[in-house]
Structure formats: C-alpha cells, structure tokens
Nucleic acid binder design. Structure first.
Length: 720
RNA sequence: GGCGGCGUAGCUCAGGUGGUAGAGCAAACGGCUCAUAUCCGUUCGGUCGGGGGUUCAAGUCCCUCCGCCGCUACCA
C-alpha cells in the first residue's frame, strides 16, 4: 500500500509579484505532484498566499484600503500567474481565513499548556491619539546613532542600524504624528531551546529517511548552533490572528509563527477531512518545496511548533530546496524590476510549456543557475524541438503517411531496445521519487535521443519496401516510445503531453503504461508542437527585459544624476585625532564655511599622519547621511583617490579654495542648494574616478572655482 | 576585515563515502533525408582558479593565496 503524499510549496508573501526565480518552487512542487498522481499515489498539493503582517498592513494603510482588500487584489494576481503556468494545485488558498485562526490558536494553546510559551514584559511606544501600540516601523524619530530625523523604529534607513523603537530620540507616531508614550506591554515567546531535544531526536531520524540534502542539513545545524533562542511570537498589530488569551487581547501572532501553519489551514479550507492528511504520520509523507533561504523555518521553527504540542502531526519527510536562479549577468531583483516576472512571461507569446521546459532543464538543483536569453533559445530549439519534439514529429508523420495512420503491424517488438528503455525508465522513476527533477528531465531527453538514434539506425525510409515486416515492428516500437515519453514529460510539460496523447488516441496517461506495447490502434497526423524561437524575437525580448539597458541609460546620464544629488564642498581640517576605539580611523574637526562645528571620521591611519592633514583644505561630501563609525559621529566624508590595489591613498587637497566653496562638474555649473540626503550606497553608486590625474564623474572633470581637480600620486584610480 | 557560498572544456552545467575527468550546445569533418535546414556518426577541446600538504592514489580531504557573489563590519 503506497503512502499518501502531501506536497507543499513555500507560501509566497502576498504583495510580491513572483519572478521566474520565485516560480521555481511552485513549479517544482507541481511537477512532483503531477508525477505522484500519475504514479498512483493519493496526492494533495497545497499552497497559498501568506497575508498577515506589518508589510501588508502598512501598504493597505497607505492606499487607504483594508488589508484584506489589498490581499485579495494580490491574491488574484498570484492566482492568475500560477493558472497561466498550469500549476495543478489541489488548493491555492490564503492565510487570512477562519480556519487559519482556529488552527493557529489551537496549536498555540497546546504549546502554552505544555509550558513552552513564556511571557516577558517590555516597554513599547504607544499612541494615545490612535489608542494603539505602534509597530516598530510605525514609529519615526531621530536616530540616536546618526541623527537622521526620519529613522524608523525597526531600523534606521540612514545608517542601517537595527533599532528598538524606544531608542529613537524625539519619537512620533507615523500614523497620527502624535508623540507616543512609553507603555508597558507583554509579549509571548516560544521557548525553542526547551523543545530542542525533541527536535533533534525527530531530525536525526527524519533527515535520514527523508534524505535531506547535505546543504540543508548543514544550514540547519549551524542555525541551531548559533541562533536558537526564545523567539517572540506576538505583536501589537491589528492585521493578524488574535492571541487567544484574555491577558493578551488586542495582540496578534507574528507572521512567521502563523505562516507555516498556513499549509495546514489551507488544507482545512479544501477538505473537512484535513486531519487525515496532517495528523496521520503513519500513512502520509510530507514533501516540502522551498527556496534555500527558507530552510530553517521548515526544519526548525515549524517542526518545533508541532512537536511542542505533544500531539501527532505529519512532519516533514523530504525537503527539496532550490538554489537561486540568476538573470543574465546579475540577480533577479524585485525592487529594481530586473528579470522576467510571472506576468511578463505571459506577454511574450511564448507558451507556458516552453517556459516550464527551460526552468526544469536548467533548474538550480545543486547550485545557482543562470537564466540567459541566448541559452533559453538554444536549449529550446536544440533540445525541446530538435530532440524531443522532432522524435514525436518524425515518428508520427512517418506512420500517418506510410501506414495511413493505422498502427503498423510487424514482427513483434525489439527486446534489446525495450530492455534499454526499461532500464532508463526505472532510473527516471527513481529520480522522480526523490524530486531530483532536473536529473529526471534530462534523462527523459536522453531517452528521446536514444529514440532518434534508433530511428536513424533502423533507416525505415529505406527498408519500408525491402523489409516491411521489420520496418513495421520498428515503427511500432517507436510509437510506443513516444507514448512513454509523453507520460514521462507530463509532469513537466502537461499541455504537450496531452497533445501527444491526442495524436495517439489515448485518453489518459499513467505511469503503469510505461514499457508496455499495447493500446494504440491508430495514429493521427501530428501538428507541430512548438515553434522555434527566432533570433530577432530573442533579441527583442532580451532588450525588452534587459536590466543592462537601463544601466546603460543610467550611465549615460550619470553626470546629471551626480549634479542633482551630490553636494561636494571644500572644508578645512582644523583638528585631527586618532579614533580611540579603532585602528584605522581618524576623527577630524572641519570648517565647512558655515561656522558650525562639524566632525568627520576617515579611515586614513597608515596613509597620513595627523600633522599632514591639519590645516589642509579637502573635499567633503556635504549631504551624506551622518553615520556613526565605531561610536564617533561622522557628518560627511572626505574624498580620497586610491589606486587599484589600494597601496596608495591620496586625499584630494585643494589650494586657494575657501571653505564652503561648492565643487562642481565642468559644464554643469549649477550649485545644489537644497540637496537630498543620500546614503553611502547611493553615493557609491555613482563612480568618481581619477583618469590621467583628472578627477571625473562620467567624463566630466570636477572643478573648484573653475579649475579642474587633479591628483598627484594616483593617476588612475577610484575616488571615494 | 569577519562569516557563508562559489570558481570543472568557448557556453550552460553533472561529477555520494578519494582510484586513469563527463553531458548537451558551440566548432570541424563525414553520413542520411522520415522529420520544424531537422536527425545520425566522428573529431577537436580541460595541468578540474593558483600554490602547498595528507595519501600508493585528490576535481573530490587539509592549509594558503587569488577572483566573483551574498550577509556583515572600525569600508569610505
């Protein structure tokens, strides 16, 4: 009796539109689920959007709609994309449901009864105006580290320091601008260390029987080694699941606690019999498909939550974690809009099966992989069309042309050929069993290639009249091989498999048909399965979705960007001290002409002595967000040129330039009066270089009082 | 600087527990014509990032250096 298989793919966060890199997990689980169904396992594939949490609450607030409305909007986008890719979910649900509330609360209460939940009292900011505790990111104020006035309570966007909202100087509510007060609040923590012995006992066995990947195990172990502590599971938010304790009314669970439980609750929205899946470890195997960044949640946090209930749950059996898919020369990036997104794929006019083909042919199974348009074209034309599609086409065309579409009747099948096929099919099945999808897929193409060789070696176009009996037998073998290939690719290319089945007059493909030679009586004239990807088409797509094109455009106007975002001024160094707690840093007092005191920190120890700097006039980035370097405030940054190996660092000194003078780009002589505050990354995104001893941005030299700024020792190098 | 990952043929990638380097594509040549100028065969091609070590034997283990990516820092 085969076990039932419960399959999940990581729940995508609702307000992210998935790109090809994200789609891999959902597609992988789909292939596995389709395989399991064909192979006769009772299968359930569950996924859905993860909806609770501050991110959606904030975004909904900004747009003036309810979080639920926002989620519904995005849920539809997700669903459309997955539908287009033919993902065969048994249920694609969402986490904002009554079932989720009920199950999360009951799991929590079990943990609570079993003593794995602790509470701690902390002080948090509270808005009396809005009558609510403020989530970390709803508090704004002045960063205690760098002085940035718009710092958020969770993290200062300026200096990047992780903050506690209570650290903020002069805090205010981002909702109503009122001044929040400190108020005591209590939060609940799950005691993961207390559950650890159970977790380890379970993991020791599960990781072996489920054949967890080496890297997943290693990641889990290191996570346990240096990170396992009590984790807070509640928040003072509205958009979430209420904590079912009177003393905690008004609080909700933190998303990471409830999200994995979404797998269970979504099942519950699909069938009232959900416990037969999730509370049935003896008969159900759980396969989870995730990205490599998600491993600890599925190996530690979620299992711990379940183990802590002291009840029976269906726990993770096999985990398939994919690596990253990169795009052309870089990474897929949601924030920067780089790459191909789910909705883009639809608009290319390229069928879903072709996308699916390439995603699996090049699935990032054991290491990161790269999506390139050239490779996409090459693999599609060469393998999908030249190899597999061609075998189908040449075989079926031959039969329908020379045998009027009826199944050739010959001297019986070739046992040597079928022995080889059977061996390969067994291997492919084994790959499928452990979700080694890419290996399985490639092996199918190798099998197809074998078919092409068999066809070629048999030369039926020659023997058709000289030895009709043998020729008919050969063709019959090939037709059944085509049928087998249709079965084997169904999980990957469902639409294509269905079309081949139609040519062969087969209603339903199943794994048990593999290797058999019966059931087909007639062959229809096949239509071409795929159109080749043309050079011009690929070129257009590459340009349309090219990040580098945007980069080129940006580079072309880099000087403009610089002129409108970076303000450089001359400043005189009045004092230099060694930083007491740092080996490489000087702390300089400077006069920037404004009369105000100003301090900057520079990593010049070893390159300059203090007396070489005092009294000199240097160039300072004026509108850089202040930062604290090893405890000392740095309000700006001085410019220095360095050669390639950083063996020479040359501070850019100015002669006869008054402090406060703005440094300009030649040809763009406009001063910047009210510059935006920029962070270091923004600053460094615009390269300043020394070329032939002239300091430039793009090709424009920097000038002070109309004179070009030059270097003495570093003729060519970068400036920062 | 620290932690993690990676570096295998022109390209995209395979290579549990160490035992004479693999696939596909690209390139060159030849063959075939049933098939979407497709298919089949042959050849070419790598001191497995550099160096050192352990071993009878290392792409595979250890050390070190270099380069790239991610996170991070007294980067700037």
């Amino acid at each position: 009796m085969k076990k039932r298989r419960l399959i999940t793919s990581a729940l995508p966060y609702v307000n992210n539109i998935p790109h090809l890199g994200n789609l891999i997990q959902v597609l992988s689980a789909d292939v596995f689920a389709r395989y399991c169904r064909l192979a006769g396992y009772e299968t359930l594939y569950i996924c859905g959007t993860d909806e609770y949490g501050t991110a959606t609450e904030t975004k909904a607030r900004e747009e003036g709609i309810t979080p639920k409305e926002l989620c519904t909007r995005y849920y539809t986008i997700h669903k459309d994309i997955y539908d287009w890719f033919n993902i065969s979910f048994d249920k694609f649900g969402r986490t904002s449901t009554d079932e989720q509330t009920e199950i999360v609360q009951s799991i929590f209460l079990k943990l609570y009864e079993n003593g794995y939940i602790n509470e701690q009292e902390i002080e948090q900011l509270y808005s009396e105006e809005s009558d609510m505790f403020l989530a970390d990111r709803y508090v704004r104020g002045t960063c205690p580290h760098c002085g940035y006035t718009e710092a958020r309570g969770d993290q200062c966007e300026n200096c990047g320091k992780v903050l506690d909202p209570s650290d903020l100087v002069d805090p205010r509510s981002a909702l109503d601008n009122s001044r929040p007060v400190m108020r005591k609040t209590r939060h609940l923590y799950i005691n993961l260390p207390a559950i650890l012995p159970k977790l380890e006992a379970w993991m020791k066995e599960a990781s072996v029987s489920g054949r967890w990947a080496h890297n997943a195990l290693q990641m889990t172990h290191s996570w346990i080694r240096d990170g396992l502590k009590e984790r807070s599971i509640t928040r003072d938010l509205k958009w979430g699941i209420p904590v079912p304790l009177e003393a905690f009314a008004g609080k909700v669970f933190y998303v990471w606690f409830d999200a994995p439980i979404g797998y269970i609750s979504i099942t519950a929205t699909h069938t009232s019999d959900w416990e037969s899946w999730w509370r049935n470890p003896d008969n159900v195997e759980l396969f989870q498909f995730i990205g490599k960044d998600n491993i600890p949640f599925h190996t530690v946090i979620f299992p711990s939550s379940l183990l802590g209930t002291h009840e029976q749950w269906t726990m993770l059996h096999h985990m398939s974690s994919t690596e990253y898919l990169n795009y052309e020369s870089g990474k897929f990036s949601k924030s920067m809009g780089i790459g191909v997104f789910g909705n883009d794929a639809q608009e290319t006019g390229i069928p879903a099966d072709v996308w699916r083909f390439y995603m699996f042919y090049n699935r990032p199974e054991t290491s990161d992989a790269v999506f390139t348009w050239d490779d996409f074209q090459e693999k599609t034309n060469g393998e999908l069309i030249g190899n597999l599609s061609n075998l189908v086409n040449r075989t079926l065309t031959f039969v329908s042309r020379y045998y009027e579409g009826s199944m050739p009747q010959g001297a019986g099948s070739n046992p040597t050929f079928w022995a080889e096929v059977a061996e390969r099919e067994a291997k492919i099945t084994e790959f499928f069993e452990w979700a080694q999808l890419r290996s399985a897929f490639r092996a199918v193409f190798a099998l197809s290639s074998l078919g092409n060789r068999h066809f070629q070696a048999g030369e039926p176009w020659k023997t058709r009249e000289t030895d009709p009996d043998a020729t008919a037998a050969l063709l019959a073998d090939l037709v059944y091989l085509v049928r087998d290939i249709a079965i084997l690719i169904e999980p990957f290319l469902p639409e294509t498999a269905r079309r081949i089945a139609v040519f062969l007059g087969i209603e339903e493909l199943t794994w048990s048909m593999l290797g058999t030679s019966e059931g087909i009586t007639a062959v229809g004239r096949p239509e071409v399965l795929f159109r080749k990807l043309e050079d011009g088409q690929i070129k257009d797509l590459r340009e349309r979705f090219s990040g580098s094109q945007a980069d080129r455009a940006a580079a072309a106007k880099m000087d403009e960007t610089f002129a409108s975002s970076v303000r450089l001024v001359a400043a005189r160094i009045t004092d230099v001290k060694r930083h007491e707690k740092a080996d490489k840093l000087f702390v300089e007092q400077i006069d920037d002409g404004s009369g105000a005191e100003r301090q900057i920190v520079s990593g010049l120890v070893g390159f300059y002595e203090p007396e070489e700097l005092v009294g000199k006039t240097v160039i300072v980035v004026d509108n850089l967000k202040p930062a604290k370097l090893r405890g000392e405030l740095s309000q700006g940054m001085l410019l220095a040129a360095e050669n390639e190996d950083r063996s020479i660092v040359e501070v850019l000194f100015l002669n006869d330039v008054e402090p406060g003078t703005q440094i300009l780009l030649e040809g763009i002589d406009r001063t910047l009066e009210d510059p935006p505050v920029i962070d270091v990354d923004t600053f460094f995104s615009i390269p300043i270089e020394a070329r032939q001893s002239v300091v430039r941005v793009a090709d424009r030299p920097l000038t002070a009082n109309g004179r070009q700024i030059t270097t003495e020792r570093v003729a060519d190098g970068s400036v920062g």
